[in-house]
Design a protein around this nucleic acid. Sequence first.
DNA 1: TAAAAAAAGTTGCAATTACAACATTTTTTT
DNA 2: AAAAAAATGTTGTAATTGCAACTTTTTTTA
Lengths: 207, 207
Amino acid sequence: MDFNIEEFIENFSCKCSKVQKKYFSKNEIITSYISKRNQLCILVYGSADLVRYNSNGSKTIIEHFSASDIFGEMFYTITTNNEFFVISKEKCEVLFFTYDDIYTKCKNNCKFHSILTDSLPKLILNKMIQLNSRIELLTRRTIREKLLTYFEILSNYNLNKTFLLPFSLTDLADYLNVDRSAMMREIKNLKEDGFIKKNKNKITLLY
Amino acid sequence: MDFNIEEFIENFSCKCSKVQKKYFSKNEIITSYISKRNQLCILVYGSADLVRYNSNGSKTIIEHFSASDIFGEMFYTITTNNEFFVISKEKCEVLFFTYDDIYTKCKNNCKFHSILTDSLPKLILNKMIQLNSRIELLTRRTIREKLLTYFEILSNYNLNKTFLLPFSLTDLADYLNVDRSAMMREIKNLKEDGFIKKNKNKITLLY
DNA sequence: TAAAAAAAGTTGCAATTACAACATTTTTTT
DNA sequence: AAAAAAATGTTGTAATTGCAACTTTTTTTA
């Protein structure tokens, strides 16, 4: 991502009336996907998860966001009765606005606005790529395939066979959409079969 | 989708040099995702599938496209060694161009170009919604949940408890990412348990 | 720094799903 | 209209995964 967050933050001093800026500490609800507000959010810094609580009480991590990722219920048509929350995983700064607002430039025609509108296509394209790689992951049949595909994605992203997991193992299971104990068993198998090395949340691909 | 395809086709008579138009009959390869050409495609009419052939020979239908859907490898970072093809499922007309080209307007500044650039944000937003609902489907744990979620999506889209499957059952299994015979068994169970009625490719939700 | 809470790790067993190998029906091709 | 191909439907069995119920380790909170 060649999106310049520093410049973004710096230029936000113009106090644009169309954009709300909010701060969150760990484990707070940033937003929920309920009504059709056409809300769009940018995570300036920090990390957060889009989480779905299923009717039977189980939890699924639908997406994982880090700095400069966009989210918001404008990308969703909520068809099922499930509840969607975006939860901060650490200290976060988030920008809130609506798609319509941002293309109706504020009277000041401030620099912040132009940076935002110029950046949005790039941010949206980046999000599309993320969604596709999420689908790539979820269309793997077995736990082993899901783990290896996820590790390959992280390895490619970091340009390194060794990388840190951005999740706890508990959350990773929710993200891969599998049972945690079954996943733990499979991680053990991958270690025994010589596919990976694991030390705390540091993984090394051995192939 | 309030995207006007008729107007789109009509205005394409300007023969814009930046956009290629091609026709396909059933079961042809429309494009493959291999090199970084930044290719973007619009399906004007017809239907097509984005298909991944896995190393073990099994097939996954990643996405299903119908009229006015967009696709192309510019939304992908191909990390794995799998092959991706877009295959026509019936007679299709497809527009090919690159993102860069379309925002570098042709010297004629033709009406087609302006329609295309004006429509793209809407088409892209629509695609985001589709990708999210695909993820919604794939994050269901059991075959029963996947089937019911998929049927609910179709039912909502058609504003009717009765609807036609856009897939053969064989393809539906590839789309839900489950074994076909296991899915057939589950469809039988859903019928026996009074959740659905099924007649050929017509499904009715009974709840 | 203790206590409490969360995460990691383990295991047996039950439920679900994949695989394989069919028969039957429908669709397509010659 | 016959033959071939594809899709649908079925079933037994094996493999995978989920669930439950723990222990141990690490992290957070008071």
